[in-house]
């Protein structure tokens, strides 16, 4: 398999600009405030997980990053460009939260994945490079033998793999995935994890929205936890077993009064 090591370092001068920068972002759905001033920075090459319970605002946060939910306050930049003026969508691969890749008319895996190339070239004919990129990303998610099948005939995990292949088809530098692991089988989870590993090894920047860390945990550099539209944690991924798993915990605990910082990161 050919890992897409797509030149993540651009020919333009390398800047220290973060890939994603949300500053004091507020947003509302209807009259209900969903984001209450969040700050979120994702630097080049980082894998950041956006965690939180249902209704914490994590989906709204990523959808505002890709311009699908307008902010009511604050600002967002992508690759150092204000979102309003950002046009370079070929650098962003988006995997929406979907249970299906199908629509009202049959479409093959290859046809759906090919639509991902549109962010590189919006109009005009498909080039050989386009076709090669499509085949490569289908292969990357392990669906090469299903490329000619209708997406309607696929399992839930395979649907998710199609959506990820569609995002990868444009060789993006930034991958934004909304709940990629939700409700998919173990085999697909493993393929997704290895696909993501290859992308990260190739220098991709990743923002993942997740309910829980799950099998992707070893890949994640940093976790941002949202609750009620506010960031309540920004740092190393919280361990599933909490502070009790940290070495030295036994010595700290009896004297915990003086060490309030060692506990309660998530509370």
């Amino acid at each position: 398999m050919d890992p897409v090591i797509s030149e993540p370092v651009m020919s333009e001068p390398v800047t220290s600009e973060p890939v994603i920068s949300v500053r004091g972002g507020t947003a509302a759905l209807g009259s209900r405030p969903v984001l209450r001033g969040i700050d979120l920075t994702v630097n080049r090459g980082e894998v950041v997980a956006l965690l939180g319970a249902n209704g914490s605002g994590k989906s709204t946060a990523v959808r505002s990053v890709i311009g699908q939910v307008p902010l009511t306050g604050g600002g967002i930049s992508l690759f150092g460009t204000e979102l309003r003026r950002f046009r370079d969508w070929g650098r962003v691969g988006y995997v929406p939260q979907r249970t299906t890749a199908a629509s009202g008319v049959p479409a093959t895996v290859r046809e759906v994945v090919t639509s991902g190339r549109l962010s590189r070239k919006r109009f005009g004919w498909l080039s050989r490079a386009d076709r090669a990129a499509v085949e490569r990303s289908i292969e990357l998610v392990g669906l090469a033998d299903r490329a000619r099948d209708s997406v309607a005939a696929l399992s839930g995990g395979q649907h998710q793999r199609v959506l990820i292949a569609r995002a990868l088809a444009a060789d993006p530098e930034l991958l934004i995935m909304d709940e990629p692991m939700a409700g998919i089988d173990l085999a697909s989870q493993e393929i997704l994890a290895s696909t993501l590993r290859e992308q990260v090894a190739g220098g991709a920047t990743v923002l993942l929205v997740m309910h829980e860390l799950g099998p992707l945990e070893p890949l994640i550099d940093r976790a941002v936890v949202l609750r009620d539209g506010c960031v309540v944690h920004d740092g190393p991924p919280p361990k599933a077993v909490g502070q009790h798993a940290l070495p030295g915990h036994d010595h700290v605990h009896p004297h915990a009064a003086g060490e309030p910082l060692r506990t309660g990161l998530l509370t």
Binding site: G67, Q68, P96, E111, S115, L118, R122
Partner: peptide, 22 residues
Amino acid sequence: GLRRQLFAVSQDEEFARVTGLP
């Protein structure tokens, strides 16, 4: 002439917007 673009928009409108299509 615009079948790829119309296909993408009709298949998944949100994704099509993120590709920068009009």
